[in-house]
Design a protein around this nucleic acid. Structure first.
Length: 287
DNA sequence: CATTTCACCTGGTGGC
DNA sequence: TGCCACCAGGTGAAAT
């Protein structure tokens, strides 16, 4: 479910409620590897660590963690070297993942795969029916910090954005979904961004003019920021860290509006398959 | 290497 | 009500 605006909304919500808290204990379900690091090593790595901050990178939620009291040295390294985090817990929600902050007595819903109990008494829970999500623990004393390979669509500049697509023959829609180029855009916002930029999804990425690419960059950033302001798109079951739905689905111009009139020109929205994904566009507004 | 296709999962929906 | 086909916001491995 979650693309950049949904992940950003969740990360902000989780940050607001668990920043400064401390992980007492972590529990993981046995359900086959919905994990990137083994459950046992994650549980061991997480226990006792303070949560310094929670933020988003691409479609990943990154929990910045300090040192557990036992390994804390008198050398003032409870925040790690230079006040930076000593470890990270990285959550990718896949299609149906949820990261929720709950009271401990809140019923444990089916497909709950992780429960982190916190000093405050609250719990951080990961729920994921389809199990496409991924959980990873990184000890920064041993490895490098997490940074997705793709550029951030909200801050990328014109020249760099244009360079991403130069010489690429594939459809612009397929290119937008490639997380190693641009991180955070998924099926909804690729379609919406292309609509606002007036570009056909199947147009070759490398054949777009510099002006079209710039229009696309701006359109994407506007759509994503607008969606963040509305708490994301709740297409079926997306909710934020507090279980609250978003409202951007009400503003969709093309996504899942097949056969409905275009909000700008009235012609009917079409659905095709590009890069194996449902793709929606207005043949009149997008050329 | 660039690009496309498919497998991975469960659950909801709509047709019959 | 039941059964079934189809669809779904994501990725990464395998095939081309």
């Amino acid at each position: 479910m979650p693309e950049l605006p949904e992940v950003e909304t969740i990360a902000r919500g989780v940050d607001a409620r668990v920043r400064g808290d401390r992980i007492v204990e972590a529990w993981f379900s046995r359900h086959r590897e919905p994990f990137k690091s083994a459950a046992a090593s994650q549980a061991k790595g997480l226990a006792g660590r303070p949560i310094l901050a929670v933020h988003r990178t691409g479609k990943h939620i990154v929990c910045e963690l300090g040192l557990a009291p036992a390994e804390d040295t008198p050398n003032a390294r409870s925040l790690g070297q230079d006040g930076r985090a000593a470890a990270q817990w990285i959550v990718h929600l896949g299609m149906t993942g949820r990261l929720l902050v709950t009271d401990p007595e809140a019923p444990v819903v089916p497909h709950t795969h992780a429960r982190l109990t916190l000093t405050s008494g609250r719990e951080l829970r990961f729920v994921d029916p389809r199990r496409f999500g991924r959980l990873e623990f990184r000890d920064l004393e041993k490895r490098e910090g997490f940074a997705g390979p793709g550029a951030e669509p909200l801050t990328i500049e014109a020249t760099e954005f244009a360079a991403l697509f130069r010489g690429r023959k594939l459809a612009i829609k397929a290119a937008l979904l490639n997380q190693t180029l641009l991180a955070g855009v998924g099926n909804i916002y690729a379609d919406e961004g292309l609509f606002h930029a007036g570009i056909r999804p199947r147009k070759s990425a490398g054949r777009l003019t510099r002006a079209q690419l710039e229009k696309l960059r701006v359109a994407l950033a506007e759509v994503l920021n607008h969606a963040i302001r509305l708490g994301g798109s709740s297409v079926s079951d997306y909710v934020d860290a507090n279980g609250v739905k978003g409202f951007f689905q009400l503003e969709h111009c093309v996504y899942q509006r097949t056969g409905e009139p275009c909000r700008r020109c009235g012609s009917l929205i079409r659905r095709v398959v590009v890069a194996g994904r449902s793709t929606h566009y207005c043949a009149n507004c997008q050329r």
